[in-house]
Design a protein around this nucleic acid. Sequence first.
DNA 1: CTAGGTGCAAAAGGTTTGCGGTTAA
DNA 2: TTAACCGCAAACCTTTTGCACCTAG
Lengths: 141, 141
Amino acid sequence: MKFNPSHKKQLDDALSHKGLRATKQREHLFKVIIESNHPTADEVHLSAKTNLPTISLATVYNCLETFVECGLVRPFNFDRKATRYDPDLTDHAHFQCKESGDVFDIPINDEIKSYLQKLLPAEFELEAVEVAFRGKGPIAP
Amino acid sequence: MKFNPSHKKQLDDALSHKGLRATKQREHLFKVIIESNHPTADEVHLSAKTNLPTISLATVYNCLETFVECGLVRPFNFDRKATRYDPDLTDHAHFQCKESGDVFDIPINDEIKSYLQKLLPAEFELEAVEVAFRGKGPIAP
DNA sequence: CTAGGTGCAAAAGGTTTGCGGTTAA
DNA sequence: TTAACCGCAAACCTTTTGCACCTAG
């Protein structure tokens, strides 16, 4: 997705809401995430170095955690692979293609959510559900 | 769960099916997994050392991978936490209690499975779904 | 005898941390 | 000015690997 002014506003608002600064590193890293497809920290770092040649991986990790705490991105994992970061905060699942490694967003509807919730015995207080699909994804065009 | 003769048979069959030996390490480690609740490799190692004081963590990892390949246990993760091993191979989800860290098995019915599958556009070939719940579990008795 | 198995130690991969120096409200 | 921030290096945790020795069919 293309980074647009509303993304910039979202970033500035979220950061200032926590009393944090909108540095050029944070701005650029957020842009990279918006314009990538569920990147890992390493991929963000690699991509960011084009514009910010001296940025360190540690700074990338620091900023990513800041983003998570500000509610700007959501981290997720497949198995114990490197954490991926998703700027789409709406309820959805992920599908990973076994061949390409590509990750696709799969919308989740309310019906499914309530069905899933009903699986739990009454004593369980549910806070979050995560659904991960795996298989062969669509052939790239 | 208590380790019983049918578990022993299951282990021997699965190993010999792949031309592998039922060593005392493998037998004991499988017993530990059966009698633990979704242990991590480290927990298996710790528990196994009571009976096999010299067993190394590397051997534990080797055996666990052997078990996975033989279809004796199934590995799963919460976030990027240490992999846990589950001897229950039936379709089910996991619930992790945020407070105690305890993991509970949650049965999954066919209805849910088919609903989940229907979320995927036709071009996706599904191989596996994983459902992970998180929240506050039942109070321990 | 020999393929399979064990244990040790070292390395790998991903992530976190401590710290001196920098920057911006 | 001063708290927030950056970048480096070192540490950390889980897992994997290479290799010498051992063991059971």
